[in-house]
Design a protein around this nucleic acid. Structure first.
Lengths: 344, 344
DNA sequence: CTGAAAGCGCTTACAG
DNA sequence: CTGAAAGCGCTTACAG
């Protein structure tokens, strides 16, 4: 393995000088720099990352903490896009990403402790936001550079990047209301995720603003990919005044809803107009194509990395909370001419 | 920051001894070990990972190289599951995972070079296998511990973990044949991926074995989520003797196929029986639920990590090629009683 | 079973 | 603009 010393010897300079050439130090003569660079090239020199990190007391590495298995199906489908956004920025900024997952919560804390306290990484990105996530407290206490994709009101020293989920749900619900729907159901996701609460709130707000009542049963709480959710759906659709519109927590759940409705003999959008969130790639290719709020997933990841690296580099917190714009993509699932014409 | 020296001082032993306690060295007295461990606990000691890596000349870190953007949609949906498998094992084995992506091919080589030659990682997992992937040559030349999820016949010193894709496609096709289908179409994926070639070969083999002819147009080559694919589909379905069965390269593409068929006025499985591959989570929740070959995605990842770490630890290559078993999950999309009864 | 010492490959004040 | 020297926090033969 060729080291800085080898280069120094061949170039007839000191190791310090070679080091300075590598880091583009300002006060180094062009001629020396050129000579050293040429020799590095010739000898196939690659700086030893570990040595560099140890000496400079920084790792140029961030950790991404994946959500727990139980919540993963929910995320799996915009996950890739999120990672791509994170990586696009971090690579450009010269940071590596360490991927971390945990089998159990206690495991998780131990893993993160090791990375954080062992100086393995300079910062952490948390991909999902549960209420009372112990990791948030752990990182906040350490005052460790952290960005959470989501939100928390428990601590005030970690950065959050998020969708304005309340507004997004308000927009999605209003879209249905504007088309003439009066009875609109909301299909929720896991309780402990902040995104579930925020989107539910936005739905309620839109209904209230339009002076529309919400029947308690219209809010379906079970997991729509499981039996529990199917029962709730069946209950709602058998009501005398069944909903003609549905706002669904995310696109993946929409697949379950559409399938469930079909089994009950209903068709989207003929009998029910549907709109959901995240705009995963398959939303567009579903039958029917699903109307969905695009939350700028890639941008969410890109910004998370950007803000984290900025914090690390500047040594102080930037703006604590950043919202990424969203946009409703209207497709077949929410377009029903019958409703608009007052036949339903 | 508390270091090994601090612990040594407080415990009244030498740093070497503390180091040996940490690494569970065999010849250390129980009493010393207990004393030192207690003090480490009390002082909140966490070993500095970088220093450890530098001194021991190993990083306990692997790199995962993500497929390029162009190929990602294809992979996005079993991606999460694959990563989960990899992480499950590597975490257990005490290895960290570095995530690497590349915007351009040249970028990619540079990134990997930096990681590999800079001693940043001990091994690499390549997530997708293109023909003539320059990364494969790069890693093979360096004789660097590498496992490829897929296959290659270009080099003989990197480990591969794969599905027997030819057999999987043979099974899927035979499933349709056994139900009485005689005219079966194959919807292919990107040409440069080995998985496309292997599955096509398996389809051909099954047809041949059953003495069934393959009309050239039945093999649809365009991207089914794009116009190009739709044209091919339309062509095939307008033939006099249109296919009654379809074998589709992967579940994501199946969504496009089902949607395209619908637009042409055909229904699955009423008019066309369909089976595809990968068994992503949504396959089960699609309308209709999609029959799919489960390729043991998690196991694929788990084995990849296992074999790579074994290679690194043992210092020599284990079995070069490992095949993970697959299993056809039969669902509604491929069950058509009409065909079975000879009405179609 | 334990310690003193050298070393892993860099960086970075300090001095000139 | 450049060099000598100390140091980052560990590991690991070597010696006892």
């Amino acid at each position: 393995m060729v080291t800085i010393k080898d280069i120094a010897r061949v170039a007839g300079v000191s190791p310090s000088t070679v080091s300075r050439v590598i880091s583009n130090h300002s006060r180094i003569s062009k001629s020396t720099s050129d000579k050293v660079k040429k020799i590095m090239e010739e000898m196939g020199y690659h700086p030893n990352v570990m040595a560099k990190n140890l000496a400079s007391r920084s790792t140029k590495t961030l950790a991404i903490v994946l959500p727990r298995p139980a919540e993963e199906l929910f995320q799996d489908f915009f996950f890739g896009e999120l990672l791509r956004g994170i990586l696009a920025h971090s690579t450009k900024a010269g940071f590596d990403m360490l991927l971390s997952a945990a089998s159990s919560p206690s495991d998780e804390e131990e893993t993160i402790s090791r990375l954080v306290k062992g100086g393995r990484v300079d910062g952490v990105i948390l991909l999902s936001s549960r209420e009372d996530d112990p990791l948030i407290y752990l990182l906040s206490e350490q005052n460790f550079p952290t960005v959470l994709i989501g939100r928390t009101n428990k601590v005030n020293n970690i950065i959050t990047v998020d969708t304005d989920n309340e507004e997004a749900a308000f927009d999605a619900t209003s879209h249905l209301i504007n088309q003439g729907h009066k009875r609109i159901s909301f299909v929720n996701g896991p309780h402990n995720l902040t995104v579930s609460r925020d989107r539910l709130a936005g739905y309620k707000l839109a209904m209230k603003k339009a002076n529309l009542d919400i029947h308690p049963d219209w809010i379906i709480e079970g997991d729509l990919l499981q039996q529990s959710g199917y029962r709730g759906l069946s209950l709602v659709m058998n009501m005398n005044n069944r909903p003609t519109g549905m706002v669904v927590i995310d696109d993946v759940t929409s697949f379950g809803v559409i399938r469930g409705l079909e089994e009950l003999g209903f068709e989207v959008p003929r009998d029910v107009s549907l709109v959901s969130f995240n705009n995963i790639a398959l939303a567009e290719h579903a039958s029917p194509p699903i109307s969905s709020v695009d939350i700028g997933t890639y941008q969410l990841g890109y910004s998370a990395s950007h803000l984290l690296i900025k914090t690390i580099t500047d040594g102080h917190l930037p703006q604590l909370r950043t919202l990424i714009p969203h946009r409703l993509m209207v497709r077949e699932s929410s377009i029903n001419t019958l409703v608009r014409e007052g036949h339903l």
